[in-house]
Design a binder for these strands. Structure first.
Lengths: 188, 188
DNA sequence: ATTTAAAAAGGACATTTGTCCGACGCCAAA
DNA sequence: TTTGGCGTCGGACAAATGTCCTTTTTAAAT
């Protein structure tokens, strides 16, 4: 649910920043700011320095589906850079969000010249794939109650930190159903 | 639903096979053979030459959830090779399946030394991520009827080629529900 | 040609989830 | 301090989906 990538963040701050000479910019966004819109041309790849963002997708029928929440070290915009496609997700700051911003061209140059960076990105992608596959398989194969319980075990202060509407959008259900389940869980 | 990767297959047959000197093996599997089990150590990466495979995951409660069907050029085992983890999916031949089998160690060597190959794998991963994200967002945000209609539009002879149970497992529903929806669709 | 097993199809009912709505509390702008 | 908006919570009913079971169809084996 909250994706992080300590290795990637570490490599950027300890190795890349020194040699970047202005190619890596540092940015800050206020809560609820849209950092990256859906179906836009993406000119930068972002890596989260601090804060929390939500990555979601608005369907033709208006429903929002939250793919993931992104925390420290998580990268976004990289899929669009690699595939040269328009963005398919929208990224929005939940908290105050600090990011490193890397020009797409420089990002691709790094992929070709910096073996360590290349390997970190490969691992990041493989890891995202693994995680999302397991997540959706679980969610589809278990009851709503199981899914919510599992989330609350992994993230004990989930309810305090994330709005009910967002949790519901993450689970692909509506808020009424979430409330109902939360109540039955509370009653044991 | 049926993932393919023409570029990757082309590169392997036209460039890699010549220089491989036995490091790339060609294998064939009968229908229903399990090529790769769940939670196993993975010693090879596979690329499909011909045929169809299903990639699924069995949950603790016994439910099978189908991630994808793999067709020509699709790669599997690569996530485990990159992340050095046990397999989390099971790959099973649907048809007679022909694959190229690459030793994990050679695969990783290729990633480091062959820029073209590296780029093809990066694109393959980015593409898988994009595709699965869009797929699950759609499925979670639309009615079952919409989901089935959409599948049938994309794959006109879906019903003929893939068992109902498999389609249901792909959609995360049970067969009864699938039958019901198919009937209402047929009636228009 | 007959038997057998597996897949396909659907009836009947239970359970889950969605839709629509109103009530309440919180907080910031007027 | 009021007002209005937004998030939270839940009642009542509708709709969708699951469970259990039986029947039909299909295809392979004898």
């Amino acid at each position: 649910m909250i994706r992080k990538n300590a290795n990637l963040l570490h490599y950027i701050t300890k190795h890349l920043l020194q040699h970047s000479e202005g190619t890596i910019e540092s940015c800050q966004y206020a809560p609820r700011t849209v950092v990256l819109g859906q179906k836009k041309r993406v000119s930068s790849v972002f890596i989260i320095k601090s804060g929390l963002a939500k990555c979601y997708l608005t369907e033709d029928n208006g429903v929002e589906f939250i793919q993931e929440f992104f925390g420290e070290g998580e990268i976004f915009g990289e899929l669009e850079a690699i595939n040269e496609k328009l963005s398919f997700c929208c990224i929005e700051a939940v908290n105050t969000l600090e990011v490193y911003k890397i020009e797409t061209t420089y990002f691709k140059e790094l992929l070709e010249t910096d073996t360590t960076f290349n390997s970190l990105i490969l691992k990041a992608l493989a890891n995202k794939l693994n995680y999302t596959a397991v997540r959706h398989a679980y969610n589809q194969s278990h009851t709503l109650e199981d899914n919510v319980k599992r989330l609350m075990e992994h993230y004990p202060n989930l309810i305090q930190e994330i709005a009910k509407q967002d949790i519901a959008n993450y689970l692909g259900i509506n808020v009424r159903s979430l409330h109902r389940v939360l109540k039955t869980i509370a009653q044991d």
